[in-house]
Computed example of a mutant assay.
Amino acid sequence: MSREQQVLDRIERIRRRKPVVREDRITLAHGAGGKATHTLIEAVFLEAFRNPLLAPLDDGALLRFGNERMAFTTDAFVVSPLFFPGGDIGDLAVNGTVNDLAMCGARPAHLSAGFILEEGFPIADLRRITDSMAAAASAANITVVTGDTKVVQRGKADGCYITTAGVGIVEQPVTLSASLARPGDAVIVSGPIGEHGAAIMLARDDFDIEAPIASDTAPLHGIVSELLKALPRHVRTLRDATRGGVATVLNEVARASEVAVVLREDKIPVRPEVTGVCELLGLDPLYVACEGRFVVVIDGEHAEQALDILRSHPLGADAAITGTVTADPPGLVLLRTGFGGTRVVDVLVGDPLPRIC
């Protein structure tokens, strides 16, 4: 049985467990990337649009045109504030779309951009955002080829929202899915986590906290390409750890593959500044969003080779093997703490960090 067929069979088994939305109205938690988001997507959107291309619910859809494989993704950006240390909504929109394509194993090629602008939004800020997008697109070697603009009445939006779609070419013989993890695989995180979410929190001025933290927003297709060129048949899963953070990504893997993921707390890369901010705010860095980090699940025998490849790239200099995949208990993520104990790392519940991306 091919890897693609394995993916579809396992997905179909999981989809038989019918999720139910119990709320009568949308809440912020439905946009947090955690349990409420997954339930909403599966019970409403997947139920309405069900088809084999959508069913995997990966970062993008894989499309075949003759012998060519292409990835197609779409995204929306509502981050608040629009400008923050390390970036703004413009480069975030480009990098976020590029990274979704990269997680599909694709080389990004073209991008669309739609703008929803609020009446009264400063033209100078719009120019700043589009200049940032143009610079990010140039750096990622991707072109903005089409778009749209809508304006709504004052008070009906929050300045500027951006929607994107992107297409890319899958050049390596890879099949990537959250449902392909196996016991014995290793889990690698490409760098220190939680920096984007922490930077956004501090930029909102809701807390009297100062710390030298900037968003990690960056295009990941270059580092991913190097990994897939070297180990195309040994990488099982790629996921960028955005909403819900690393914890949510690994819960998706554990559930989709019907395996357990066991993390070691002392191996998870987190900068002291991020740890400090999270401790002050009562947050766990594992749930805090990144925009320039990704998670790799790879055949354990090739984990060290993969780590060397990642560390040879500027965006992966602090990559670390953070855990392993085991058979039991299926569907759970466990954390071995520094005190020798073990705790369950569940899917994010609620929304401690709304409007992060």
Rank of each mutant, 00 (worst) to 15 (best):
E265Q: 13
D318R: 11
L281A: 04
A303M: 03
Y287T: 02
R311Q: 14
V262G: 07
G340I: 12
V325S: 12
D266G: 05
E279I: 00
A247S: 12
E273G: 07
D308M: 12
H313Q: 04
E265A: 13
L281G: 04
P269N: 08
D240Y: 12
E252Q: 14
S257Q: 12
D308E: 14
L263Y: 04
I268P: 11
L281S: 01
V253K: 05
T337E: 14
L332C: 09
S257M: 10
L263V: 07
E291P: 01
R243F: 07
K267G: 05
A241M: 01
G282P: 10
D284I: 06
R239D: 06
K267V: 03
T242A: 11
V235D: 04
R243P: 00
P314C: 05
V296S: 02
V253N: 05
A327H: 12
V249E: 13
F339I: 10
A241Y: 00
V277Q: 05
V295E: 07
A317P: 01
P269H: 09
I298F: 03
G341E: 13
T324C: 12
V261Q: 01
R264F: 06
G276D: 15
R311K: 15
D328A: 15
Y287G: 02
V262L: 15
L335H: 02
A289Y: 01
V296Y: 00
P330F: 06
L315G: 00
S312K: 11
C290F: 00
L281C: 03
E291A: 15
R293G: 01
R239T: 03
D318Q: 09
V325G: 07
A319Q: 08
V297R: 01
L335S: 03
G244M: 02
T275N: 14
G341W: 06
L238N: 08
V253A: 04
E252Y: 12
L250F: 04
L280K: 15
R236Y: 10
F294E: 01
E265R: 06
T337L: 08
G276M: 11
P330A: 15
T322F: 11
Q305H: 09
G340N: 12
V261G: 00
G338L: 13
L283C: 06
E279S: 13
R311M: 07
A320G: 06
L250T: 03
A319V: 02
E279T: 06
H302N: 10
P269Y: 05
E291M: 11
G341D: 14
G282M: 11
I321Q: 13
R271Q: 13
R293W: 00
G331Y: 07
L286E: 00
A260N: 14
V274N: 02
T324W: 13
V333E: 11
V262Y: 15
P285T: 10
A320L: 07
V246M: 00
G331R: 01
Y287W: 05
F294L: 08
G276V: 02
V296R: 03
F339T: 15
G292P: 09
P330M: 08
G338R: 15
V288R: 13
L307E: 09
L315D: 05
G245P: 08
E279G: 03
A254P: 01
C278Y: 06
C278I: 08
D328Q: 15
V249N: 09
K267M: 14
G282D: 07
A241E: 00
L238E: 09
T324A: 14
G338A: 15
A306I: 00
G340E: 13
G340V: 13
V246G: 02
R233I: 04
H313T: 03
G340D: 11
A241F: 00
V274F: 05
D240L: 02
Q305T: 14
D240W: 04
